[in-house]
């Protein structure tokens, strides 16, 4: 476990923790982007360059921006009642999450696994070949899924006929 791994983990965990704990939603979305950049760095660190760059493209470039847009589109109207979160709801949530974390970490530490630390290289060319041969069917299905999801998203979010623009 190298220094760089520790630093990258810190970036990821702090970014993720910030992303779910700020009260300003914009800050949350920006912290999410930080966490995603950290994850991309982790993938690069682990030698999966293509996944790292995909992570940057999809999460930092697209998902964070879409989240930002959603936040801006759903600014509450000035007269809407504020959201009062009962404190016990929060505490229960954090407690449950902490419990799961403890259990998971315990399970990981309790499992004897051997790390093979040899050099692993996967080139973009290899990935391309695999996508076109072994994984051709999943690729097509994912393409279909993305198309369907995007069309569905547009249909869901489009203003209904006759509805006034806010």
């Amino acid at each position: 476990m190298s220094i760089s791994f520790i630093i990258i983990s810190m970036i990821i965990l702090l970014g993720a923790a910030a992303a779910v704990s700020f009260s300003n939603l914009i800050h949350c979305a920006l912290s999410l982007a930080v966490a995603m950049v950290g994850l991309a760095m982790l993938y690069l660190h682990l030698g999966a360059e293509f996944v790292g760059f995909t992570q940057v493209l999809v999460y930092v470039g697209a998902v964070s921006i879409v989240v930002l847009f959603a936040i801006l589109l759903t600014r509450p109207a000035p007269f809407s009642p504020g959201v009062h979160v009962p404190w016990h709801g929060r505490v229960t949530g954090i407690l449950v999450a902490g419990l799961v974390a403890g259990m998971l970490v315990g399970a990981v530490l309790g499992t004897p696994l051997t790390s093979h630390v040899g050099q692993r290289v996967i080139t973009v060319k290899q990935i391309g070949m695999e996508l076109m041969t072994t994984y051709a069917a999943p690729l097509e299905i994912v393409g279909l899924l993305l198309t369907a999801a995007l069309m569905g998203a547009v249909i869901l979010a489009a203003p209904e006929n006759g509805e006034k623009k806010p």
Binding site: I12, A19, V20, G93, I94, V96, A97, V100, L104, V105
Partner: peptide
């Protein structure tokens, strides 16, 4: 695991 649980805490809390 920790990342998962941070996400879980976000969803729950």
């Amino acid at each position: 695991s920790l990342l998962f649980c941070i996400g879980l805490a976000g969803v729950l809390a």
